[in-house]
């Protein structure tokens, strides 16, 4: 019961926020266009957050997702502009997209391999690759971006007036939900995060599962990178700067525990939307982005504080 209320809290806050903004700014906020705009912008964070949710449930962390996104986008941009023409050909766009996805996958695989083969803490490994990936993305075009003016499908087109990237986000969210809830891989993720030694003694192949989780996260980052590239029709080496913090925040607001074993896809989606709607609403209200940072910081701390108090109470009533 208590647990249920705890999970409802971020959702309630989200509904309240939307209601308040609808009342304050009915003309600009409460429009289909604005909603799709917010969802579309959430899609990049949301897709990466699905991977991050699994990583955090397993008791790990991935600080490199922002840099990984930049590298993936830059590899795609490099390939798309390879023939020297300003407008990339459809074939190159396809190849570039696949290369971007493959880059994300490879980066994730590298993280996973370093964590499991060398038995290093995920925080250290991804702190290192965060720096390295960012460096590589700057080197690739001397710190400049690649323009891909016709690469609009993933980020700017719609199907039945719903943005394509929102549909992709939805699909990845369903996939994440399904994996975590209904597959042994998902169950093992919870078990590893809750008690790695116990999971190992119960026959869970801990290393293989961690490798899969980090690699999958890399693939999701690659996908997000292509959406981000398409939204701005350019691959930028500065893409995703400090993105990892936003994503970790969304996962934590959604009820995941950084010590592992706890977290849900639905919670993470709510956390992601909460941050996006808050940003959007505050912007519409004319509050500066600097103040937005302060508000989001307060929400992160508040969400976790309330969570802690609820848990302490639950323990005491036992």
């Amino acid at each position: 019961m208590n647990r249920f209320i705890r999970q409802l809290l971020p959702f309630g806050t989200l509904i309240l926020l939307i209601a308040a903004l609808s009342a304050l700014e009915p003309d600009t906020f409460l429009t289909a266009e604005n909603f799709f705009n917010v969802l579309s912008r959430s899609s990049v964070n949301g897709i990466i957050a699905m991977g991050m949710t699994a990583v955090i449930i397993s008791g790990g962390i991935d600080l490199s997702v922002g840099s990984m996104m930049a590298v993936s986008g830059m590899v795609a941009g490099l390939i798309m502009t390879k023939d020297g023409s300003i407008v990339p050909t459809p074939v190159l766009m396809w190849v570039g997209t696949l290369a971007g996805l493959a880059t994300g996958l490879a980066c994730g695989l590298l993280n996973g391999a370093l964590i499991t083969k060398l038995n290093l803490p995920p925080f250290i490994v991804t702190l290192g690759t965060m720096s390295a990936f960012r460096g590589i993305s700057y080197v690739m075009n001397d710190g400049m971006m690649f323009d891909v003016p016709t690469y609009t499908f993933l980020g700017q087109s719609t199907v039945a007036s719903i943005p394509v990237n929102v549909l992709i986000f939805l699909a990845i969210a369903l996939l994440g939900f399904f994996i975590l809830r209904y597959t042994p891989l998902g169950r093992y993720t919870y078990a590893i995060g809750s008690n790695r030694q116990a999971a190992y003694h119960a026959g869970v192949n801990v290393n293989r599962n961690l490798l899969i989780i980090y690699t999958l996260t890399g693939l999701f980052v690659g996908l997000a990178a292509m959406i981000a590239t398409s939204r701005t029709v350019s691959a930028q080496p500065t893409a995703g700067l400090s993105l990892e913090l936003d994503i970790i925040a969304a996962v934590v607001i959604g009820g995941a525990s950084l010590t592992g074993g706890r977290g849900t896809v639905i919670g993470t989606i709510i956390g992601t939307l909460l941050i996006s709607f808050l940003r959007n609403g505050l912007t519409l209200l004319g509050i500066s982005t600097n103040i937005q940072l302060v508000v989001i910081g307060a929400i992160i701390i508040g969400a976790v504080a309330i969570d802690q108090m609820a848990r302490a109470k639950a323990v005491e009533s036992r």
């Binding site: 169950r187 919870y190 078990a191 008690n195 116990a198 190992y200 119960a202 074993g261 706890r262």
Partner: peptide, 21 residues
């Protein structure tokens, strides 16, 4: 506690963990 149970997970999950597959 150390090598047996995943304490915060459901009892049923702890029971089925080695046999899931």
């Amino acid at each position: 506690k150390r090598t047996g149970l995943c304490l915060e997970l459901a009892c049923s999950w702890n029971i089925t963990l080695p046999s899931l597959e």
